[in-house]
Each structure stands twice: as structure tokens, then as C-alpha cells.
């Protein structure tokens, strides 16, 4: 037993330390665990503080560059209008993402089932993907009367491709021996999809989802810029445009801050979903010992 003891202790990380080397290793691990959180927060705080000082030291007027305090103040003051706009942008983003998931996964499954379908439709998907959304959007707003549907369509076009491309790749990369096994046990098409291809594609799909979440927000914001002033029910991009015309720079910053925060939250949520869906089995979510 004395031979196996040291390994079992170093694996669990508990027990008394005998060695200076072991001790320094443990200290290093503790420091790293704290630094993982502390470091980004400290650097971000420092950057904000420097931004504030820059404004104060150089006496920059707020209509050129507002300080962080002023931006926060505006955010609170204008919360009524800004929160309404945030809801609109968020609604378009989430709806576009939902439709992108349904469309992307649906098309990917269709492609995996039928080579002919893939050959026929994948050029359309690529054309939609490579054409900049700002170039298509004006046409969409000419042909589609409902502003909401137009925005949704723009955001969808941007968001659906990573889901389609990743899921298609995932469906095709099922283990070939498992495929043979499915053949030997005479699994039908639906069983093969459900028990083999879809689980194999899950990590790929989730990777696509993380990209698509951010892109849906970008699509929604860009489309709103193109759509221009729309009166009631306008999103954050419209607020930025409007504030720009009025030289209300602090509000531009406040709206920008909200967009950035939304993006970060969407990324965090999709990352969390990915982690929880894969933590039991996939390499990407496992901690190595």
C-alpha cells in the first residue's frame, strides 16, 4: 500500500504535504484558482477607472466623451425608453435564434438524409451566408411590409448558417463502427438518426449555437440600422441612431453598453447550456486529471 499512497494523495489533492515541491505546486494551484476570477475583474476595473480619469484630467466635455459615471447616470435616467428598446431587440434576437435553430437543425437533418437535397439546397445556404446582410436588408424591407418580420428575417439569415454547417458536419461524423453496428442490427433510418447521428451531432450543434447566439444579436442590430427610424417599438440600434442625430453621446454609450451586455449574457447562457448538456461524456466538458 505504501507504494500507491502518494499517487492517491496527489490525485485527490488532500492529505499532509511533505515535499517543498508539492507545497509550491499546491500554492500555485490556489493562486491560479483565485486569479481566474480576480484578474479579469481587476483589469476591467482598471480600464474603467482610467477612462474616468482620462475624461477628468483632460476636461473632455460629455458631448464628446462622457465618463463612465455619466453613462451609468444616463442609463438609469433613460431606463424607461432604453428598457423598452432592449426588450424589442431581445425579442427579435431570441426569436431569430429560435427560428435559426429550427431551420438549421431541420435542414441539416434533411441534408444528412438525402444527398440530393444537400446538393440542391446547400448553394442557397452558402449564397445567403456570404452576402453581407446590410446589402440584402434594404431589399427585404421593400418586399416585406411588416417591420418585425423583416428584422426577424435579417437576423435569421445571419444566425442560421453556423447551426446548419456545424450540425451537418456533426451528423456526418458519427463513428463508422457504430454505423456498421446499426446496419448489423437492422436499425431503420429514424433509429439511426435518433440513437446515433443526433447524439453525435450534439457537441457540434452546441458549438454552432454559441456562434449563432452572438450573430442573431448582430443581425438584429444591423437590420434595425438599415430599417431606420420606425417610430413605436424600436430597438436599441434605433436609439443609438436617434441619440446620434441629437448629439446625445451619453445615451449612445448607454445603449451600446446594453447591447454589449446582452451579447455577453447570451454567450454565457449558451456556454452554460453546452456545458450541462455535455458534462457527462464529451471531451470538451471534461476536466482532465
Amino acid at each position: 500500500m505504501s507504494v500507491t499512497e502518494p499517487t492517491s494523495r496527489s490525485e485527490t489533492g488532500v492529505g499532509p504535504m511533505f515535499d517543498a515541491e508539492e507545497e509550491s505546486l499546491a500554492r500555485k494551484q490556489r493562486v491560479e484558482a483565485v486569479a481566474k476570477w480576480l484578474l479579469p475583474i481587476a483589469v476591467l476595473s482598471l480600464a474603467i477607472w482610467y477612462w474616468d480619469r482620462l475624461v477628468v484630467w483632460n476636461d473632455i466635455p460629455h458631448y464628446i466623451l462622457p465618463g463612465p459615471g455619466r453613462v451609468m447616470q444616463t442609463l438609469i435616467q433613460d431606463w424607461g425608453t432604453l428598457s423598452q428598446s432592449l426588450l424589442v431587440t431581445l425579442q427579435i434576437t431570441l426569436m431569430a435564434l429560435a427560428v435559426a435553430i429550427i431551420g438549421g437543425v431541420g435542414l441539416a437533418v434533411l441534408f444528412a438524409q438525402s444527398r440530393l437535397a444537400e446538393m440542391s439546397f446547400s448553394p442557397f445556404a452558402v449564397i445567403l451566408q456570404v452576402t453581407p446582410i446590410v446589402a440584402i436588408a434594404p431589399l427585404i424591407f421593400i418586399y416585406i411590409e411588416s417591420r418585425m418580420v423583416g428584422l426577424l428575417l435579417c437576423a435569421w439569415i445571419v444566425a442560421f448558417f453556423p447551426i446548419l454547417a456545424n450540425t451537418t458536419l456533426g451528423l456526418k461524423s458519427a463513428d463508422h463502427n457504430l454505423r456498421d453496428l446499426m446496419l448489423i442490427y437492422k436499425a431503420n433510418r429514424w433509429q439511426r438518426l435518433r440513437y446515433l447521428q443526433l447524439p453525435s451531432a450534439l457537441p457540434y450543434f452546441l458549438g454552432g449555437l454559441r456562434i449563432a447566439g452572438g450573430l442573431a444579436l448582430i443581425g438584429a442590430v444591423v437590420a434595425e440600422y438599415v430599417a431606420g427610424t420606425g417610430g413605436i417599438g424600436s430597438g436599441l440600434a434605433f436609439r443609438i441612431l436617434e441619440a446620434g442625430y441629437r448629439l446625445n453621446i451619453p445615451r449612445m454609450f448607454a445603449a451600446l453598453l446594453l447591447i454589449a451586455l446582452t451579447g455577453v449574457i447570451i454567450f454565457a447562457i449558451t456556454t452554460a447550456i453546452s456545458h450541462f448538456a455535455l458534462r457527462k461524456w464529451h471531451e470538451s466538458a471534461l476536466k482532465r486529471e
Binding site: L181, Y185, A187, P199, W281
Partner: peptide, 27 residues
């Protein structure tokens, strides 16, 4: 009538051991 063992274990990594063994019945 047929059972097969490949050179690699060829298990579904997303399923537990019992669920892997269940596969032929599940199908």
C-alpha cells in the same frame, strides 16, 4: 442472430454502460 465485437470497443460515449448494452434490444 448476430453479435459483433469490433477492434475498438465502439461504445456510445453519451450513454451509460447499461444503456449501451441495451442498444440491440432498443432497436
Amino acid at each position: 442472430d448476430l453479435g459483433v465485437v469490433f477492434q475498438e470497443p465502439t461504445l456510445m460515449p453519451w450513454s451509460t454502460v447499461a444503456k449501451n448494452v441495451w442498444l440491440p434490444f432498443r432497436l
